[in-house]
Design a protein around this nucleic acid. Sequence first.
DNA 1: CATGAATGAGCATTCATTCAT
DNA 2: GATGAATGAATGCTCATTCAT
Lengths: 210, 210, 210, 210
Amino acid sequence: MAQAIDERTARRVARTDSRVQRRRRQILDAATEVMSRTGFHATAMQAVADRAGISVGLIYQYFGNKDDLLLAVIVDILEDFRDQVPAAITAAGDDPVRRFEAGFRICCQVVDAKRHAVNLTYRESHTLSPAGLERIKQLELETVEPIRLAFREGVATGVFRDVDSRLVVQNLLLVAHVWALKHWHVAQFVTLEQYVEQELSLLLASVRVR
Amino acid sequence: MAQAIDERTARRVARTDSRVQRRRRQILDAATEVMSRTGFHATAMQAVADRAGISVGLIYQYFGNKDDLLLAVIVDILEDFRDQVPAAITAAGDDPVRRFEAGFRICCQVVDAKRHAVNLTYRESHTLSPAGLERIKQLELETVEPIRLAFREGVATGVFRDVDSRLVVQNLLLVAHVWALKHWHVAQFVTLEQYVEQELSLLLASVRVR
Amino acid sequence: MAQAIDERTARRVARTDSRVQRRRRQILDAATEVMSRTGFHATAMQAVADRAGISVGLIYQYFGNKDDLLLAVIVDILEDFRDQVPAAITAAGDDPVRRFEAGFRICCQVVDAKRHAVNLTYRESHTLSPAGLERIKQLELETVEPIRLAFREGVATGVFRDVDSRLVVQNLLLVAHVWALKHWHVAQFVTLEQYVEQELSLLLASVRVR
Amino acid sequence: MAQAIDERTARRVARTDSRVQRRRRQILDAATEVMSRTGFHATAMQAVADRAGISVGLIYQYFGNKDDLLLAVIVDILEDFRDQVPAAITAAGDDPVRRFEAGFRICCQVVDAKRHAVNLTYRESHTLSPAGLERIKQLELETVEPIRLAFREGVATGVFRDVDSRLVVQNLLLVAHVWALKHWHVAQFVTLEQYVEQELSLLLASVRVR
DNA sequence: CATGAATGAGCATTCATTCAT
DNA sequence: GATGAATGAATGCTCATTCAT
């Protein structure tokens, strides 16, 4: 049994080749699109295949099964977050407050760009295997780590209060996510820019020394 | 026997056919239990019936179909929130800050008591019909309304900054929910009490006038 | 997981009720018919359902899955063998040779009556789970046991040579099965009656003392 | 090395494009191996290709489809039988009894050497097309023909009773096959050598004149 | 010759829902 | 009111087969 699975896994095409990369992207994009809109459970593999313009069978050559596809989709989204945050922080210069602000802003922007995908992440994480869950926990921590460090710098330089940095960045990330989670509500009375600025104001007030 | 007496008692108390009410509760509790643990899609109606100790057919006589049952479960949870908040605020006295604090505390306590149910609410809302969705939006607003009013009082008396009260209570509620949503992470380094106090400190700092 | 399976198993209808017994028979007969003709792997559950005049789903309430259905079919056939042999031997009187002969004759008759089913048994046993395999081994041994005892009696009374009784009955059963296994060939030049008598002659010659 | 020499020898013997022959063998051996172990239906063409160290596509250039491959495998096994029997009989000298014995012995030895393959033959014959089925019937008859002739000689010289030679060789062949078919049972209480000698004793007793 | 990516029909299994009792 | 046997549409997944390279 285990051997059979190994064989099948091995047959999944190697990741290096560019053609393979293109196919993976194609499937991943289709899956993200359909699953974000329809929800994981309500999404039929056929629907993903249709959206990608390929056959069902092919999906199974790139992703072993539906759960693996979900994991890949979520990881793909989270990697995007993780990769964009450091760049934005670096670009913000040396001031810890500026860096902290930049961290929040980029999070909100990415959330806005991938609103449905973020919702998918929230809703369907519990479907993942323990290993998959561990993977995304790790990615989320990696994502906020640069922001957390910026906050710690601020504490060191005396602009921020010495509160638990883990809670601070957790709050920060969730406030960003709310733009997706409660979009139906929030977007009724503020634009993205207003949301970002007002929340940033609250966020900074909560941690700044008086 | 004891049951027979209960039935008669119940009939006296609430004239609205009590047997129906009891059945509804029985099903609702079973559904909440099973769905919270297993997730909506992974929950079979049979499993709910088993848990409630009745037949599948009976569920359909009280709740038209599976989606309606989900809506009822979520509404039931949210009504609990809505009903508990005002009492806690009233009990906190007249000071707006005290009332605001009490609002946050009760939210966290209810979340902790119904951790899985809160997660269910977050994950499966998107499954609901537009009408159902509207219903729960309304309930959520009703829930935070007393807290929002306490905040507005604080603004009026000059202890709180005049920021958008809708965002403030949204953040407050979210932070309470995080105790359920990210429990696997947060609970690793803080207890509920510590979480409540530290988050309260951040929350108040974010809105207090300096 | 294990619990979930248990629950499902438990839901499979209790065997006592006569209605249930009738359904089981109905499905079993249909499955035997279709699988014997088409082969196990080539048989779709839908085909069994069609043949039985019921829906696919119902099969799964009586037999957990396709493999279990196969086991039930094979066991059903073998139980028939096991139940018919002792009666025939008893009816043959006290003479060991007569009893031995009767054992062979009844085997051939049952094989002839269930030719396709016997072939199914031979072909698909290897598909069974270890537990299922053990079950049918046991049934086969129970079937030949009365014949084996008749043979041992013959050895005791001095009419049969003292050779390994297990091999003798194995050969006996095999020769009976050959009427099904090689029917396409054998039936071309002998009738069942001729086959039985000629093979019986060989069989007795092989074990009789000279 | 030995293989290389064999290859060269083969090339000298049969000029018919040796590369093709080698490929056929390679695929046939792989298919026999995998199908015997796993069963025909449970064997994926990919698995055969993997075992042979080639691509799936190539199998289809040598054997039209999966059923044809099965036929080729079974024929290959049966040809092996057919080719080994005459040699063994010839080597046994002129005595009909000796020749008959030699026929049984070689059958048992080949069965033992190709136990799984023999089982495959039994289990999967019914999958074959009518034409294929005819082919293997013919091969089986060819296989036992030399043994049947030895028996007839014995009848002519008066050592064997004049019973239907077709039934006799059929029994003989099946008893040999039982070593494969019921190996799990028989091998528990006799070795191959014991099995051969004891069955031979029964076989001879069944046909010898007294 | 040889490859293996791509296809898509086919099948086991589940489960929401109904309805006769 | 209450049951649970019966239905059958829906879906994940496999694998024989093809064909462009």
